[in-house]
């Protein structure tokens, strides 16, 4: 029994549905880490999640509709960095370019804290042989063409192909 457990390679299936920078982290962190642990990993990117497979990543964050996002300065003296600029969502919505600024600040914060970039994590996933699947229906729906995406995509598949795979995995997450 113990021997059989030791021989079993754990597997992880993730369904990635979000295309913003903040939501890009959980699937790529979990997939790359599972890969480092020697797990079999597959990720199915669907709807906005497909954005994470583009050759050129232009991921942004939006504090709109996300009142939990801390708004802190990544530069300046410590007292300034410690302030949480709690701008109400209703006010943010009216400021042009707010998302660009928030994205810039988030990028700087990620760099300051030694957190990997999405590009880096995606490469780590591929190095670990994680299978990254793209949802064919989403490609058609949003009018994408396949050459906008990285060539390492393991397959252009649909729900009917991914589900039987997810069924057999030890851990299955919807993100």
């Amino acid at each position: 029994m113990a021997e059989r457990e030791a021989a079993h390679v754990p597997s992880l299936s993730i369904i990635a549905t979000k295309g913003t920078m903040d939501w890009a982290y959980p699937p790529f962190i979990l997939a790359s880490t599972a890969g480092a642990l020697g797990w079999d990993v597959s990720v199915f990117f669907t709807f906005y999640g497909l954005e994470l497979l583009k050759k050129d990543l232009h991921l942004e964050i939006s504090p709109l509709g996300n009142p939990s996002m801390p708004m802190k300065m990544p530069f300046g003296p410590q007292w300034l960095k410690d302030i949480n600029w709690n701008v109400p969502n209703a006010v943010m919505a009216g400021i042009p370019g707010f998302e660009k600024v928030a994205t810039g600040l988030m990028r700087q914060t990620v760099k300051n804290k030694g957190v990997a970039s999405i590009d880096e994590l995606r490469s780590a996933c591929l190095e670990a042989d994680a299978k990254l699947y793209a949802c064919q229906m989403t490609v058609d729906l949003f009018g994408y063409s396949q050459d906008e995406f990285i060539p390492e995509i393991a397959g252009w598949i649909g729900a009917a192909s991914f589900l039987p795979q997810a069924q057999k995995s030890d851990v299955c997450l919807f993100i």
């Binding site: 480092a36 990997a116 780590a124």
Partner: peptide, 29 residues
């Protein structure tokens, strides 16, 4: 200076270059 999961990813990568029985010393913050 690296944050989760980079230390683990780099460790895994460094270990692949080693032979069985060889050792890797890691410093992390």
């Amino acid at each position: 200076g690296m944050n989760c999961p980079l230390p683990i990813l780099r460790t895994k990568k460094a270990l692949t270059d080693l032979a069985k029985g060889e050792t890797l010393a890691i410093t992390a913050t």
